[in-house]
Design a protein around this nucleic acid. Sequence first.
RNA 1: GGGGGAGUAGUUAAGUUGGUUAUAACGCCGGCCUGUCACGCCGGAGGCCGCGGGUUCAAGUCCCGUCUCUCCCGCCA
Length: 586
Amino acid sequence: MLRTHTAGELTKANVGQSISLCGWVDQLRDIGQLVFLSLRDRYGVTQCVFESANAEHPLLAKLKSLGHEFCVRVDGVVRMRSEKDINRSQPSGEIEVVIDELTILNESCELPFQVRDDVMAADDLRLKFRYLDLRRPKMQRNLQIRHQVVQATREALSELGFLEIETPMLIRSTPEGARDFVVPSRLHPGKFYALPQSPQLYKQMLMISGCDRYFQFAQAFRDEDLRADRVPVHTQIDMEMSFVEEKDVFAAVEKYMSNIFMKVKGIKLDTPFHIMSYQEAMDRFGCDKPDTRFALELKTITELAYKSSFGVFKDASCVRCLVVPNGESVTRKDLDGELADAAKIYGAKGLAWTRVKEGSLSGGIGKFLSEIEKPLLSEIGAQEGALILFVAASYNRCCAALSAVRLKLAAKLDLIDHSQFNFLWVNDFPLFEWDEDRKAYNAMHHLFTMPKVEDIQYLDSDPGRVRGQLYDLVLNGVELCSGSIRINRPEIQSQVIDIVGMPKEEAESKFGFLLESFKYGAPPHGGSAVGLDRLVAILCGESSIREVIAYPCNNVGVFPLDNSPAQLNPQQLGELKLSINPSQDA
RNA sequence: GGGGGAGUAGUUAAGUUGGUUAUAACGCCGGCCUGUCACGCCGGAGGCCGCGGGUUCAAGUCCCGUCUCUCCCGCCA
């Protein structure tokens, strides 16, 4: 090794030792005949120092020639700093290294941005020079936490008897759900592989193989439009178990999640996590991934609202409201601006409001509600000073709009305790959702989810009523995980395929191999997939998953570092027997 | 596919109802400094104001187009 120690590990225990450090020039503080060099590596920063009465000393000159991010090696002796010079904010702040020799391992060009946690460059520039961006201590810490999460998961699942097994990356394209990334085959011109959107089918077949318990850190690829928290490649903690019911999957997830929080945060999680049905979540929070760190629950007042003189309410299929206790600080500007906009984005025509003042409704639409004032106040439990916000639309739009308003209000009124980690299982999702365009049912999750046993009787008569053995894990309003108990019986599987209107031949050609595998003693099984990037982002206190992925792409799917995607050269296209038709619009 | 926002020095930003030489901080270069740690002080260089067109005596500023990025809806677990 070119070094004996790292910059993060030296303490007063090393005083008097001759040591060598390698790293980068974090900062050079040149006081003339006294020069301080802060040397940074992954482990921390150590102050190195050289002083000389001789202003012409060659080592002084060499130190002064250093620039930011030069890669250097320092040989020297560790010494205690005098009491007044101790830096309490650094782990190695009690000591410093007196430089005997300085080796410049490599110089650095002038930097595109400063490598410091408190200096933030634009995202695209950071990604173009990602190797510099990752030198920042915060990014190093994020990668380290990600590693700890992976290790803690591996440890806990291994202990439970799970096998880590890889599933194929080049698979058959099944145009269900998201668009596939496709890979042309050279050996089979005109044919394409797809990159997996999830290892779903392969992990289910591992259960049929008798592997019993599987997990994998699986990369999942989706060719869809991006968002701040959505990238085309993300990593899942993917697992599957045989001979289980929902609660067994919950227990396994809770086990590794507990290990993660203990190892990374030193926090003991309260298990089992609270469970809430989809319907309850929608009724109370208007959202299937409610942030339960604050209250602000929704109420449905459709029947009562019809009796008011407010015309908009009479025309709506559903009227829901949100009661904000002590809502005086929410201004007209907020109501008509930010909050109304939030509601409108999700399909509400507007956001009606009124306030409880001196026991009656005042302001906004209050004057139209006098007929129902008393029953309304008691039904929704609004107290003096409350602000009441209404949306009149379909049930789903009411939920979406008021849920968005609820989140805005929580931020505005500072209702969220950011030290909390609120886990919540949401289950009993509907198995199907109605697709208005297609005039048919779609699978809410995927086609392989087992209906709830007591709802199987409605599969033929009323599919919309059938709930699935389908669950999400929500943490602080972020959907971390989804999973289900799978169908293992061919006759139920074909019923489900019928309901979504997929012809038998199509099902056969897309995933006939899975259906066939069910015929050979497929065990009852189920599993889940946790979004690793989102989990790590929450643990790091980051709002974007790009902060916890070493090499993410930007928001339009371009990776500025290597400038992918890129064109293929004619020879490559020729080998693949592909031609590009640029004039064709999709 | 649709809507909002942004693009000015290496970086991050300011730039008034259109008006002289386009500011600041950090970085960079030079000088001074023996206890700094966001070191300090003095000096300096650095600009196609994203690109193209238009309005005007005059455009960083107004208009149109275009490119890039960003946030959101749709889409997507």
